[in-house]
Computed example of a mutant assay.
Amino acid sequence: MSDISLYSGLYETIRRWADLIDDVIVNLKLNDPDVEQISFSKLEELFSTLIDDEGNPDFSDKRLASIIENELDRKIQWGELAGGLKDPVRRTSIIPILESIAQCLGKKHADTVAKMRWGYM
Rank of each mutant, 00 (worst) to 15 (best):
E45S: 14
V89K: 08
R15K: 09
I14L: 15
A18I: 00
G106V: 01
F47D: 03
L105C: 09
I76F: 11
E99M: 08
D22P: 01
E12C: 04
H109F: 14
V113K: 12
E69N: 08
S48Y: 06
N56T: 07
E12Y: 02
E45T: 15
P88G: 00
D52G: 13
N31D: 12
C104L: 01
L105I: 07
G55P: 01
D53N: 15
K86L: 09
P33M: 09
V113C: 01
H109E: 15
G79K: 05
V89T: 11
L85S: 04
K115A: 14
K86A: 12
R90I: 03
I68L: 15
K107L: 05
S48G: 11
L30F: 01
Y7F: 13
M121L: 14
G119K: 03
T49F: 02
Y120K: 13
I68R: 04
G119L: 02
P33R: 11
K42A: 09
I51K: 06
K75R: 07
E54M: 09
E44M: 15
A65Q: 04
L46I: 07
I68E: 05
L43E: 02
S39Y: 08
G9K: 13
Y11V: 02
Q37E: 13
R117H: 10
T112P: 13
C104P: 00
G79M: 05
Y120N: 10
S2W: 10
I76E: 09
I14Q: 06
I38R: 10
M1T: 15
L30G: 00
Q103F: 10
R90S: 11
L72H: 06
E45N: 12
D22T: 11
L6T: 09
D61M: 07
H109V: 01
Y7I: 02
I21M: 10
E99D: 14
D87M: 01
I76K: 03
N56H: 12
E99N: 07
D22A: 12
I25L: 09
E12K: 12
L46E: 05
D73F: 07
S66I: 00
I95L: 02
T49Y: 02
P88S: 03
A102P: 00
Y120L: 07
N27I: 01
D87V: 02
E36W: 12
L10V: 13
R117S: 09
A110C: 07
I101L: 05
I38M: 09
A114E: 14
A18Q: 15
A18D: 15
